[in-house]
């Protein structure tokens, strides 16, 4: 996996590069601000970029804006945003253009190196990785519709894990149940949300969008 890192704190930038190199990934560039990030992505066309949201000069959302541009200009590059706080507004802006190849994690998650690289892999492959915090906040802000209310607690838990971007196998692992049980729950979710099987639409994505109120 070829990676570009954009993070203004040098300590973390170097440690991330070290960790990814350690695991056999190629770090093409490690930069400290959004302009350098755009340049590095254009030059290296990496599989994925790890981007801090708050970077100089304004320390607000330059990372997010760069991420949205990158998704538009270089669709082959996934973007994993991370920051010390989860902002619902930022999550919405990021997901507005689609959930493929994007991720948004709390910075603390890098402390679990294995999970972090797993999320990074998912984003690089065009998948999604949303922090549980993002999912909770978006779902909390969403309008609770009747069909969502009819889900059982377990079904909602499965749906939340789906929203984080996990596969059925990963959900089974997280909940310590069999893959069959997860499939049963997922089918129940589709049924209650009134999503019949069809070739035109991905029911999984539709269910998650409904859940997040997008």
């Amino acid at each position: 996996m070829r990676v570009v890192i954009a993070e203004d704190a040098a300590v973390l930038r170097e440690l991330l590069a070290l960790m990814l190199t350690d695991r056999g990934h190629e770090v093409c560039a490690a930069v400290g601000d959004a302009d350098a990030l755009r340049a590095a992505v254009t030059e290296h066309r990496p599989d994925v970029a790890v981007v801090d949201i708050r970077m100089p000069p304004t320390h607000t959302d330059e990372g997010l804006r760069a991420a949205i541009d990158i998704r538009q200009d270089c669709p082959g590059t996934g973007v994993l945003l991370f920051s010390q706080y989860i902002e619902t507004k930022y999550a919405r802006r990021l997901l507005a253009a689609g959930s493929a190849g994007v991720g948004y994690l709390l910075k603390d998650r890098v402390a679990n190196v294995a999970e972090f690289t797993e999320a990074l892999n998912r984003v690089a492959d065009g998948g999604t990785a949303l922090d549980p915090e993002v999912v909770t906040q978006l779902a909390g802000a969403a309008r609770r519709t009747e069909d969502l209310e009819s889900l059982t607690a377990r079904e909602r838990q499965v749906l939340a894990l789906m929203a984080e971007g996990r596969s059925n196998a990963a959900i089974a692992q997280a909940l310590v149940v069999s893959a069959g049980t997860v499939e049963k729950h997922v089918a129940a979710v589709f049924g209650k949300l009134n999503l019949p099987a069809s070739e035109d639409a991905n029911r999984r994505v539709l269910a998650v969008l409904r859940y997040l109120g997008a």
């Binding site: 300590v11 973390l12 440690l15 960790m19 603390d108 890098v110």
Partner: peptide, 24 residues
């Protein structure tokens, strides 16, 4: 907030990360 964000918080994230790498 800025000082915490740019200072201690980053240090602690890095600390946790290197400990996890060491454990692996």
């Amino acid at each position: 907030e800025r000082d915490l964000h740019d200072g201690a918080q980053v240090r602690l994230v890095a600390l946790a990360m290197s400990l996890d790498m060491a454990r692996e």
